[in-house]
Design a protein around this nucleic acid. Structure first.
Length: 231
DNA sequence: ACATTAATTATGT
DNA sequence: ACATAATTAATGT
């Protein structure tokens, strides 16, 4: 196991107020795990033994409905903790954490989550903020499903993705991990066909650019218009 | 307004 | 050459 640089954590919200010595101690208890695209850090229903911090890459959090279809609940960007929702309730992971791109994460035994919160000031509050924000996001998406139409939903989904994983290019803002139409359909509760039609339509209008597993938003304001519009 | 089915084409290893 | 992704049209609820 190689040495990890303390400056890695220093900039991240959960650790930003900690001293170098404190971070060193935390790092020494961490395990690193690297996954290729498609690999899982943990799966829904497993015993929640560890919590994670994503250093690089992107994670999609997947739930499987009783009917058997997959739903992408949310995405995790680098620098965020995940696998911590279970700590505030049950002992099983509520969802699967799958690498949307090659990803690198640190992990600690679950008991340390409480320990860190108790010892290091600011750690707990930061985590509650993160969990709270995610709960809100999930809730707002549930109400979206009920109220908005498909076209608006995938527009907002794209916008959310650019906010969480947007990378500026000369053409526009690219979603910087591989994403298929199937993925987007699982985020928005539609079919890949509908997503495909919408995206190719938008591409013809110059709102987006897309090749396989890659989407660039050219005119975000147009998506905003679609997302909160009455046809 | 959207899903489903199915057939066809494009794209990446 | 093969598997996976994307498009497109036709038909169904």
């Amino acid at each position: 196991m190689k040495k990890l640089d303390e400056s890695l954590l220093l900039r991240l919200p959960p650790f930003s107020q900690l001293s170098r010595a404190q971070i060193r101690k935390i790092l020494d208890q961490a395990q690193t795990k690297r996954l290729d695209e498609g690999g899982s850090f943990f799966s829904e229903g497993e015993e929640a033994t560890r919590f994670y911090l994503l250093l690089d890459g992107h994670i999609r959090v997947i739930k499987t409905t009783p009917a058997g279809d997959q739903i992408i609940v949310l995405h995790i960007a680098a620098g965020q903790l995940f696998g911590i929702a279970a700590a505030l309730g049950h002992s099983l992971y509520p969802a699967t954490a799958q690498a949307a791109a090659e990803s690198l994460a640190l992990s600690w035994p679950m008991p340390l989550l409480q320990e860190f919160s108790a010892i290091y000031q600011g750690f707990a509050t930061e985590n509650y903020k993160v969990v709270g924000a995610r709960m809100q996001e999930m809730q707002s998406r549930i109400s979206e499903m009920a109220t908005q139409q498909v076209e608006q939903r995938v527009a907002t989904a794209l916008l959310r993705l650019t906010n969480q994983a947007g990378r500026k290019t000369d053409e526009g803002i690219e979603i910087d991990f591989p994403i298929t139409r199937q993925d987007i359909s699982e985020m928005t509760g539609t079919t890949l066909h509908t997503v495909s039609r919408l995206l190719s339509g938008w591409e013809k209008q110059g709102i987006i650019l897309s090749t396989r597993k890659r989407i660039v938003i050219v005119e975000a304001h147009q998506l905003v218009r679609i997302s909160d519009n009455l046809t």
